[in-house]
Design a protein around this nucleic acid. Structure first.
Length: 556
RNA sequence: GGCCCCAUCGUCUAGCCAGGUCUAGGACGCAAGGUUCUCAUCCUUGAAACCGGGGUUCGAAUCCCCGUGGGGUCACCA
């Protein structure tokens, strides 16, 4: 196959959000196709009827598109004014649940050729055998002697009678070699591959069967996936060999761990919430979203997970920050898609030398198997945060202002609502060096969204800067008010100068003027520089806030 | 437990494949100092690693073996 164009695929199962590890797999598959001038396709593996959902599939596609990982073939999605996906080679559909006829055709053929057989034994039978083998400390391998497999005619007859059954692969007793392009050659002894199920009792293919058939039918040449799939590969290779299919080039990537050294998973979010609840000794749910019995069961059983909505309701009721695990989590937390791509690419791959900041075109130009690492990587949120902060810091003002506003429209619609463009730009500029994420920026700029008559004064700040000692803070405020009311120039630069000159004229340090003003304007001891803060609040707002502050603390 | 993978600063890693230029480089984090009206940014400096043991070799972070440690996987989930 060396002369054929490269075809890679990402094959998510639509049972939840796009996980960060899945995003990396997709990114690498995309990058490899781009670099080699090949094609990148998406195939949705929705063969688990109980757990798959269309909403999840759509969410995953949207997350991919948001990250900038666009596919050449696959389900179609409207994104940024164009259609992503499609089926130019006529190899679809790209949902496995719509390809049952294809799988059934292959099953028939395999039955006919003795490569597979119908197994009518009930699941309990298998479970018992497995248990017995475990008790005897033996490796369980399902591979009955040929004499126990009914003749094909009988299999056909019972199938036609509607007897419940699965279709199993008839495995050969031979070793399998996998030429992995990341790990090198990996050898598996004879007997490692057993008579695994190809088609489930519900008529849907298993993962192994769907993957092998579809990769062949869709002409996939390169399979990049997580190392958790390594032990599946001999099955796939054995199947390909039996069917006379081509074997794609495999590359198994190192895993991504959380900071506890375990595989990153949604469970982490439940665990973090559970730890928090346990530390607070809460025994009843703090939100009506969660029934009491569900809550207590969840609390007692570390394996149990709450629904996504329930978990989020819990977190917000406790104002608890859940660890981000899925792409959507990071998006809502205010991370930039290009930073996420940059960062996850670095988990398991690097361009060599000291380069670690790069963009999608760079990846599309440089990515190759030979620089994929072999060691599992911990997902370091602190470093991601630093990367995101760097990206925000190096953006042009106007870009940051626009993208922050877009993010707000999606995730914090109330925040930017009444703000005109000029003021928004001032706010964005002031807040930017204080923010590592868009959500951070909201925290830093919160004072701007508070109505002038609703500033909440932090008691500690007010005490320290307005009420302490000889109440010099209130006197400074009075002087500032006069100067501000008279100021001709309402720009950050001029206003900074004005604050300085008030301090000078009063013969005190700038801090002794600045901090009282800061508390009056924002209620807190922390804000952007005063010139900026004043400019954002506006003259009328500033005077109103100062007056209200003076009134509140006058008698104190 | 069987099978399989892996092993450089706390973390992500460069260097390893084609041994010497490595008193092991970068980044995040951490520590100290500086700039500053607060916070943050920013600047400077610093501490910090080749898992252990054998070999091969004039020479090993780099090659080989063993040990140890970590991880993955053992479904009619994917």
């Amino acid at each position: 196959m060396p002369d054929q164009p490269v075809i890679t695929r990402f094959a998510p199962s639509p049972t939840g959000h796009l996980h960060i590890g899945g995003a990396r797999t997709a990114l690498f598959c995309w990058a490899y196709a781009r670099r080699t001038g090949g094609r990148f396709i998406i195939r949705v593996e929705d063969t688990d009827q109980a757990r798959s959902s269309e909403a999840s599939a759509r969410g995953i596609l949207q997350d991919l598109a948001w990250l900038g990982i666009l596919w050449d073939e696959g389900p179609t999605l409207q994104h940024a004014g164009r259609v992503v996906g499609g089926d130019p080679r006529n190899v679809g559909p790209f949902f496995q649940s719509q390809r049952l006829a294809t799988y059934n055709g292959v099953v028939d053929d395999m039955l006919e050729r003795g490569l597979a057989y119908a197994d009518f034994s009930p699941p309990e039978h298998l479970a018992a055998m497995r248990k017995a083998a475990e008790a005897a400390k033996q490796t369980f391998r399902y591979h009955p002697p040929a004499s126990e497999i009914p003749p094909l005619a009988e299999q056909r007859r019972r199938i036609a009678d509607g007897a419940p059954h699965v279709i199993r692969f008839r495995a050969a007793d031979e070793p399998v070699r996998v030429a992995d392009h990341v790990l090198g050659e990996v050898a598996f002894g004879p007997g490692e591959v057993d008579d695994f199920v190809l088609r489930k009792a519900d008529g849907f293919p298993t993962y192994h069967f769907g993957v092998v058939v579809d990769d062949e039918k869709m002409g996939v040449t390169h399979v990049l996936r997580g190392q958790e799939h390594l032990m599946n590969t001999p099955r796939h290779v054995a199947l390909q060999k039996a069917l006379g299919y081509r074997t794609p080039v495999y590359g198994h990537m190192p895993l991504i761990f959380n900071d506890k050294g375990a595989k990153m998973s949604k469970r982490e979010r439940d665990q973090s919430a559970r730890d928090f609840v346990a530390a607070r000794k809460l025994s009843s749910p703090p939100t009506s979203e969660i029934p009491a019995e569900v809550f207590s069961g969840w609390l007692a059983d570390k394996k149990r997970q709450l629904g996504t909505g329930q978990l989020e309701a819990l977190a917000s009721a406790l104002s608890l920050q859940l660890p981000e695990v899925s792409v959507d989590d990071f998006r809502r937390a205010g991370y930039l898609p290009e930073v996420i791509c940059n960062f996850i690419a670095l988990l398991g791959w690097n361009p060599g030398g000291d380069v670690e900041k790069f963009d999608m075109p760079f990846l599309a130009q440089r990515f190759d198997f030979d620089r994929i690492g072999k060691t599992n990587a911990r997902f370091d949120r602190k470093k991601l945060l630093a990367f995101n902060g760097d990206a925000i810091a190096s953006m042009p003002d106007a870009d940051f202002a626009r993208r922050w506003r877009e993010w707000c429209a999606e995730h914090e619609p109330g925040f930017a609502a009444g703000c005109d463009d000029a003021r928004w730009l001032l706010l964005a500029r002031a807040v930017r060096p204080r923010a590592k994420t868009f959500r951070d920026a909201i925290r830093a700029g919160a004072f701007a969204a508070v109505p002038d008559d609703a500033v909440v004064f932090d008691p500690a700040a007010a005490n320290k800067h307005l009420l302490a000692e000889n109440a010099g803070g209130l006197a400074a405020l009075a002087r500032l008010r006069g100067a501000l009311a008279a100021s001709a120039d309402w720009t950050p630069e001029a206003l900074n100068g004005l604050v300085e000159s008030v301090a000078t004229s009063m013969g005190i340090g700038i801090g002794q003027v600045a901090q009282p003003l800061r508390v009056a304007l924002t209620g807190a001891a922390v804000s952007p520089p005063l010139g900026e803060t004043l400019a954002i609040v506006g003259r009328a707002g500033a005077l109103a806030r100062i007056d209200r502050c003076a009134a509140v603390f006058a008698g104190a």
